[in-house]
Design a protein around this nucleic acid. Structure first.
Lengths: 106, 106
DNA sequence: AGTTTGTACAACCATTCGGTTGTACGTTAC
DNA sequence: GTAACGTACAACCGAATGGTTGTACAAACT
């Protein structure tokens, strides 16, 4: 999630497809890197479910998944709530896949 | 920014210090990794200005910088606005440090 | 049919990342 | 003073990342 949004090219791709789905090659034409590189970026976004692809003839249309973006926004909102002290040890709602905390021992 | 939030240990550190500043060693005690590793994570968060340190005796107090977290939230809100089609080519407000777009040509 | 277009994927490479250990140094406690 | 604590930083390591080129294949145009 945040991992996927960590790259600026990827964030740029997200802004593009948020405004309308488009093919991988159309995307690739906008960047000064190889098609394969853009393809990989799309794959990363797809694995993070920020984006999904749909075949259309020989093209592959990339479309944004706004729900996942909202998920990320939710985490940041949670941060803000913590900051305001509104949350009193309510649990680790933010642990995305896993959190490497040491056994919450001591 | 997103780069800094991409690691789950780092996100965990942020949640900790959002609820109250604490020393690096206190933080380090919570994770099953070396002190140096935690120190590095804090350094990453510090470079991203998500967190700042302040000496207090021999301890170094880590405190969250909520303004930067809000910055990230702003970017995601911008994404949502794009999705809703409210923004009509208003410019690249999201380009954090730099965007590798190919000369915005064609 | 043959060619071009759009995609997928493997192999490779350099760099970054997340972690380690070891050393050094100022501050506090005994 | 000396020991313990909290920190900083360098050196190193394996794995992941971001990029490349090359090959392969199906869809579409001629």
């Amino acid at each position: 999630m945040f991992q996927a949004l960590a790259d600026s090219t990827r964030r740029d791709i997200v802004t593009r497809v948020l405004q309308g789905e488009c093919s991988v090659s159309t995307l690739a034409a906008s960047y000064s890197m190889s098609f394969a590189a853009v393809q990989k970026h799309v794959a990363v976004l797809e694995r993070a479910e920020i984006v999904s692809k749909q075949r259309s003839g020989r093209e592959q249309l990339v479309r944004a998944n706004i729900a996942t973006v909202r998920e990320a926004a939710r985490v940041l909102d949670h941060f803000e709530e913590l900051w305001r002290g509104r949350i009193d040890r309510f649990g680790d709602l933010l642990n995305e896949p896993k959190s490497p905390r040491k056994g919450t021992k001591k």
